Amino acid sequence: MYLFMLMAIIITVTGNLAIIISISYFKQLHSPTNFMILSMAVTDFLLGFAIMPYSMIRSVENCWYFGITFCKVHYSFDLMLCLVSIFHLCCIAIDRFYAICHPLHYSSKMTFSVIRGFLAVCWSVPAAFAFGVVFSKAYASGIEGYEILVECSSSCPVMFNKLWGTILFTFGLFVPGCVMTGIYVKIFAVSKKHAHFMNNVPEKENDKKQNQLSKNKDRKAAKTLSIVMGVFLICWFPCFVTILVDPFLKFSTPAVLFDALTWFGYFNSTCNPLIYGFFYPWFRKALRHILLGKIFQPHFYTTNLFLQNQ
């Protein structure tokens, strides 16, 4: 178990660190969408670096060695980073919606100042919610014998009551998931409509080729990010459902099962760099330059990472 979890942590930390370095270093990758991907990679990196190691020890040893105060800090950051990820995915979906459905207004709508505003909301709202709910103990209000359970337990238990379990599931996963799904369905419908229109409009050969390449690039980006969104929902949905139904089942979910579902959610942060590496040739090229140490060369940050047909 230690070996398996340690491998997941190493892939999570190194993979997301490679994304952070790539987008931060190469000037060609400085775009509004990529800055949101960069911020989401920071989220996944922090989860792998600061959260997963302590969870690994608790899972394998079946004991929490770090005290009740740090237990609350750990769970607050855990919950916050999960919510930060889904907020980022919502903002990325909005960004892709404007890029594909309203391309003429994209540059004026999705400016870097707008992106900074999105990122401020993505980090501040989940942080206020997670730390506020956990440290106020609102999540445990009305749970019979909770204080005794915490004092007697050695595994850092955090259980949500019916109210906060429902709120967390509804506004932390269900509503954002429905919004993102609706946006991506609209994106693919508009992309299909645009493709049909382009095929029936006579154009100069060069213009037609350029427009086709641009449309293919936007559709590929939307498809890749929709896969990222789908993997996130698949990985975290079982854990959120358990948080929702467990209070109504009088907290009968076995601790081992809940722990396994939590790690299944963590696995999402491990998958994201692998998805980018599989679908984005620019990431593979940037990673190759990083591993070869070329980024230490003067002015190498201006190098071209895109092929002509990307």
Rank of each mutant, 00 (worst) to 15 (best):
M1R: 11
L3E: 11
M7G: 05
I11C: 05
T12D: 08
G15D: 02
N16A: 03
I20W: 04
I23P: 14
S24M: 04
Y25I: 01
Q28G: 13
Q28P: 03
Q28M: 06
H30K: 12
T33E: 10
L38A: 04
A50M: 09
E61D: 14
Y65E: 09
C71R: 02
H74P: 02
S76A: 11
S76D: 02
D78P: 00
L79F: 08
M80A: 10
C82Y: 05
L83H: 08
S85C: 04
I86C: 03
H88G: 01
L89P: 01
I92L: 03
A93L: 01
A93F: 00
D95Q: 00
A99V: 01
I100V: 06
C101V: 06
P103Q: 04
P103D: 03
H105C: 01
Y106M: 00
Y106I: 00
S108G: 01
M110W: 00
T111F: 01
S113W: 00
V114H: 00
A127F: 14
A128F: 11
A128Y: 07
F129K: 01
F131K: 05
V134G: 06
S136V: 04
K137I: 00
A138K: 07
A140W: 01
S141D: 08
I148Y: 10
I148F: 09
L149I: 02
E151C: 03
S153E: 02
P157M: 04
F160W: 14
N161Y: 06
L168Y: 12
F169Y: 11
L173C: 04
P176S: 07
C178T: 08
M180W: 04
M180A: 07
T181M: 12
T181K: 10
K186I: 03
I187P: 06
F188D: 06
F188R: 08
K192W: 08
K193N: 13
A195V: 05
A195L: 13
M198G: 12
P202C: 09
E203S: 15
N206W: 13
D207C: 14
K209S: 14
S214T: 14
K215D: 12
K215S: 14
K215V: 06
N216V: 08
D218A: 13
R219L: 10
A221K: 13
A221Q: 15
S226W: 15
I227L: 15
V228C: 13
G230D: 11
F237V: 10
C239D: 15
F240E: 12
T242S: 15
I243L: 15
K250T: 10
K250R: 13
K250L: 13
K250W: 12
P254Q: 10
D259W: 10
L261V: 10
T262A: 11
T262G: 15
W263H: 13
N268A: 05
L274E: 02
G277L: 11
F278Q: 05
F279M: 12
P281Q: 12
W282F: 12
A286E: 06
H289G: 11
H289T: 08
Q297Y: 14
Q297K: 15
F300N: 12
Y301H: 11
Y301T: 00
T302P: 02
T302S: 10
Q308C: 04
Q308M: 05
